[in-house]
């Protein structure tokens, strides 16, 4: 290691050397290997999902609120100064089926439904957006294909989920945030997302 450019500090260097021992004991968790080496499993989540009994969802009546709230480009007091925010509440009542249109100001279409899952095609800055109830959020890669998961693990209330347009080059980044998430139901789901232009949207399902 070349530390000649650094001011000599035996005590700190000694601590750093000892820290290396504990650092080297950090290992990737075993389950990560399976996740990485079976990426197509993730890629297939959507196709598998849509083939699962949609009947399970057929009985699920999703009520999504569709009232355009407030003023467009409303500036949130919590947003950084000057950040324009548009808040939407979008509603839908009925059984979600493929092709159903959830009409909001921007409009989006249900591309597919499956057990605990809806896939929405949103046409305002991001091409597609997948919400899986009670679980994961899957997001597409730069090709718009569902083979990139920007967030793993269960989505919790208040959690931010995101994807990178180009994961290797630090490009960003629509951001979606689940503001409220009720397990096993889509009855109350609020999310917001941010385009690269810095516009925030919020959606509320009631």
């Amino acid at each position: 290691m070349n530390n000649r450019h650094l001011r000599r500090d035996d005590a700190l260097d000694g601590l750093l050397d000892s820290a290396k021992e504990s650092y080297r004991k950090i290992h990737a968790p075993a389950h990560l290997r399976a996740k990485v080496l079976t990426p197509r499993k993730k890629r297939d989540i959507f196709s598998l999902s849509v083939m699962r009994p949609a009947a399970a969802l057929a009985s699920l009546v999703l009520v999504v609120g569709c009232v355009l709230l407030a003023l467009p480009r409303l500036t949130s007091p919590d947003a950084p100064t000057g950040t324009p925010v548009t808040t939407h509440t979008v509603s839908y009542s009925g059984t979600l089926t493929r092709g159903a249109s959830l009409t909001g100001e921007d409009g989006f279409e249900v591309m597919a439904v499956a057990e605990n899952c809806i896939l929405l095609d949103m046409d305002f800055g991001c091409d597609v957006f997948v919400v899986i109830n009670r679980g994961k959020l899957l997001l597409p890669d730069e090709d718009g294909k569902l083979h990139y998961t920007g967030q793993s693990g269960l989505i919790q209330a208040g959690q931010t989920a995101y994807w990178s347009v180009d994961p290797g080059t630090s490009q960003t980044t629509p951001v979606a945030q689940f503001m409220d998430f009720h397990e096993n139901t889509l009855a109350t789901l609020t999310l917001s997302y941010q385009t690269e232009e810095g516009v925030w949207y919020a959606f509320t399902e009631n």
């Binding site: 996740k35 990485v36 083979h147 990139y148 998961t149 793993s152 990178s164 994961p167 290797g168």
Partner: peptide
């Protein structure tokens, strides 16, 4: 985990 997984996806 996400970072590593994404790197390998890449």
């Amino acid at each position: 985990e996400d970072a590593v997984q994404n790197a390998f996806c890449r």
